[in-house]
Simulated scan of single mutants.
Amino acid sequence: MTRYLKLRRKALHILQTELSEDLCYHGMAHTLDVLKVCDGYISRGKLYGEKAMLLRTGALCHDLGFTTSYQNHEEHGITIALQMMKDYRYSPVQRRVVVGLIRATEVPQTPKTHLEKILCDADLDYLGRDDYGKISNLLLKELKHFGVELTREEWRQKQISFLQKHNYHTTYAQKYREPIKQGHLREIRDQQSN
């Protein structure tokens, strides 16, 4: 477990010191939120030892690439994560699992393993929570900063499209997040018709 704690300290330091302040959505708060949601899955699913460590490592590292690039951040994050995992003596098999976890979070998400499904659902957990509006506004603000100009109507359409195409992968998220997400979708559609 000390490997993970050392990597955690290093990853959080990188995020804290190297992430642009303009990343108001993909910032440190998002990574900590994903980690917290993963901890809930670990507790509910009774995931112990190595599986829990690898899931937490994936959660910590999944957006590290934003420290170097806004585009293709997953690949940049994998490079950073691989170096850290080598430094902290993660085995080649463990490194492969974490690389798979990071890649699975790329949208559209395509998780294959149980851990990948959990991380993907944790990454987009907010879609099915009451803080969806607040967090989606942070994403819009971030996109604008990075040169994506959207009218109010274009942003609504983008949200509708994303929520329609998105699928949760775990039984928990399908039961507890999907209904709330569908409510957000209805609400956004209703705003559009007004």
Rank of each mutant, 00 (worst) to 15 (best):
M1S: 09
M1A: 10
R9C: 11
A11F: 07
I14V: 13
T17S: 11
E18H: 09
E21C: 05
D22W: 00
D22V: 00
D22I: 00
Y25K: 10
H26K: 07
H26Q: 08
H26F: 09
H26M: 08
M28T: 09
A29N: 02
A29T: 02
T31D: 04
L32H: 04
K36M: 13
C38K: 10
D39L: 15
I42N: 05
I42E: 03
G45D: 06
Y48D: 07
L54C: 03
L54H: 04
R56F: 02
R56G: 03
T57V: 03
G58S: 10
A59Q: 08
L60S: 00
D63N: 14
E74I: 07
H76N: 12
I78W: 01
I78Q: 00
T79E: 08
I80S: 03
A81R: 01
Q83Y: 08
K86Y: 14
Y88F: 15
Y88A: 04
S91Y: 01
S91V: 04
S91F: 00
V97N: 10
V99P: 02
P108E: 08
T110Y: 06
H114S: 12
L115T: 09
K117E: 14
I118C: 03
C120I: 10
Y126H: 05
L127W: 12
G128N: 00
G128E: 03
R129M: 13
Y132R: 03
Y132I: 01
G133Y: 04
K134N: 12
L138F: 04
L138V: 00
L138G: 00
L139R: 09
L140A: 15
L140M: 15
L140P: 10
F146H: 15
E149R: 10
R152K: 14
E153Y: 00
W155D: 14
W155C: 09
Q157L: 11
K158C: 12
K158D: 15
L163K: 02
Q164F: 01
Q164T: 14
K165M: 05
N167P: 01
N167Y: 06
Y168Q: 02
A173H: 04
K175P: 01
K175D: 13
Y176A: 06
R177T: 01
P179I: 01
I180Y: 09
I180L: 08
Q182S: 11
E187Y: 11
R189E: 15
Q191S: 07
Q192Y: 08
S193M: 13
N194L: 05
